[in-house]
Amino acid sequence: MKATMAWGEVAWFADIPHLGSRVVATALCDIALFRCAGDNVFAVDNKCPHKGGPLSQGIVHGHTVTYPLHNRVIDLDSGEAQASDFGYVRRRPVKLKAGRAPLALPV
């Protein structure tokens, strides 16, 4: 039997700037919510895979974020570092409720 996942509302879509991010603190870790091109929203652990810096401070372009301290480019669709970089960030499931208002993460 498959367990159902409980979801909790964590942020409002409008509070995430277009091509920007917001951070949500959870009991396990900080999660960065990115609003990308086409208003797609991605949730990942807020840690650059290189030295653990706050990925939420990166520059969003397309469906990627570039962490400015080390110029690491992370694909938010896959969580993987791009080009000659290596590593990945853990992606988190996120869903938008009706009307593109509250964002929810599993709790």
Results as ranks from 00 to 15, higher is better:
Ala25Phe: 09
Ala27Asp: 05
Ile31Leu: 09
Cys48Ala: 05
Gly58Tyr: 00
Gln57Asp: 15
Ala32Phe: 08
Asn46Ser: 09
Ser84Leu: 14
His61Tyr: 10
Gly62Thr: 02
Gly58Arg: 02
Cys29Gly: 12
Lys47Val: 01
Lys51Thr: 10
Leu96Pro: 08
Ala81Thr: 03
Tyr67Gly: 00
Glu80Gly: 07
Thr64Phe: 03
Leu28Gly: 14
Val89Phe: 08
Ala32Glu: 03
Ala43Leu: 05
Lys47Phe: 07
Arg90Phe: 14
Val89Cys: 02
Phe34Ala: 00
Ile31Val: 08
Ala81Cys: 09
Val60Asn: 01
Val94Trp: 07
Gly38Ala: 00
Val65Leu: 04
Ile31Trp: 04
Thr66Lys: 07
Gly62Glu: 03
Asn40Gly: 10
Gly53Tyr: 07
Val41Glu: 02
Gly53Glu: 08
Gln82Leu: 12
Ser84Ile: 13
Lys95Asn: 14
Thr64Leu: 02
Phe86Glu: 14
Val89Lys: 05
Leu28Gln: 15
Gly79Pro: 12
Pro54Asn: 10
Val44Pro: 00
Lys51Leu: 12
Gly52Ser: 05
Gly58Val: 05
Gly79Cys: 10
Cys29Ile: 08
Pro68Val: 11
Leu55Ile: 00
Gly62Asn: 01
Pro93His: 15
Leu55Gly: 00
Gly58Asn: 03
Pro93Gln: 14
His70Arg: 12
Gly52Ile: 07
Ser56Phe: 05
His70Asp: 13
Ala83Tyr: 10
Val94Arg: 10
Val24Gly: 06
Gly79Tyr: 03
Pro68Cys: 12
Arg91Tyr: 06
Gly38Asp: 05
Val89Ile: 10
Lys97Asn: 15
Gly38Glu: 04
Arg91Leu: 04
His63Ser: 06
Asp75Thr: 08
Pro93Thr: 14
Tyr67Gln: 04
Arg92Gly: 06
Ala27Pro: 04
Phe34Val: 00
Ala81Gln: 07
Cys36Phe: 01
Val60Leu: 00
Phe86Met: 13
Gln82Met: 13
Val94Met: 13
Leu33Asn: 01
His50Thr: 07
Arg72Trp: 15
Val24Thr: 11
Pro54Gly: 09
Leu96Phe: 11
Leu69His: 11
Arg92Ala: 05
Val41Gly: 01
Thr66Glu: 09
Pro68Arg: 11
Ser56Val: 01
Tyr67His: 04
Val65Cys: 00
Leu96Trp: 11
Val41Ile: 06
Pro93Trp: 13
Thr66Trp: 04
Asp85Phe: 12
Cys36Val: 01
Ala32Pro: 06
Thr66Asn: 09
Arg72Asp: 14
Asp39Gln: 01
Phe42Asn: 02
Tyr88Met: 09
Ala83Asp: 12
Lys95Pro: 11
Asn40Lys: 14
Val41Lys: 04
Pro49His: 02
Lys95Arg: 15
Cys48Ile: 01
Phe42Trp: 04
Arg90Lys: 15
Gly38Ser: 05
Asp85Lys: 11
Val24Cys: 11
Tyr88Glu: 12
Gly62Ala: 00
